[in-house]
């Protein structure tokens, strides 16, 4: 399980012990039940579109907040009440990756979706969940670049694109 950054491997190892699909579903639900939405000090509704996860029918949003110690804290919102799998993934990503330097978080592969949910999901669902992981990658890369540049300003990622001419 060393291929996964941070504590992500622990969650995936735990899931790997659940051979029975029903046990696996219970485990994933236990993750989903621990979902806590992005705190109001980071974002309030209506959430800015820049944080929307593309191609995710669960209407997920993602944020990364760069901490003073140079680590990243991940936050999510899932607007579709039926988005149970998206909530489970959000909790796994948050618990597994928050508190790591952004450069380390950026190494997470979207393929972890299949390690977590196996092949039991539709292609559409799988791609939507992989898009959540890609959103985290984007957030982490932007935060890593901001750290490397020593740039000041907002510490919340992804950042809106800069206006032309600025």
């Amino acid at each position: 399980m060393s291929d996964y950054p941070g504590r992500l491997g622990e969650a995936i190892e735990t899931l790997s012990f659940a051979a029975d699909p029903a046990d696996r579903a219970d485990l994933l639900l236990s993750f989903a039940n621990r979902f806590r939405e992005v705190p109001p000090e980071v974002a309030r509704r209506p959430f800015p579109e820049i944080h929307r996860v593309p191609a995710c029918e669960s209407e997920a949003f993602a944020w990364g907040v760069l901490q003073d110690d140079g680590t990243l804290a991940l936050h999510f919102a899932v607007e579709n009440p039926s988005g149970v799998s998206a909530k489970a993934l959000a909790v796994i990503l948050d618990r597994g990756l928050s508190g790591l330097p952004p450069s380390e978080i950026a190494t997470v592969s979207p393929d972890i979706v299949y390690d977590i949910f196996r092949r039991d999901i539709s292609m559409g669902k799988g791609m939507g969940l992989m898009s959540m992981v890609r959103a985290v990658q984007t957030i982490a890369r932007q935060a890593a670049e901001a750290e490397a540049d020593g740039s000041q300003g907002a510490r919340i990622f992804p950042r809106p694109p800069e206006r032309p001419g600025r």
Partner: peptide
């Protein structure tokens, strides 16, 4: 369902 975890929830 589309989300196969929904039934278990």
């Amino acid at each position: 369902n589309e989300d196969t975890l929904l039934y278990a929830s």
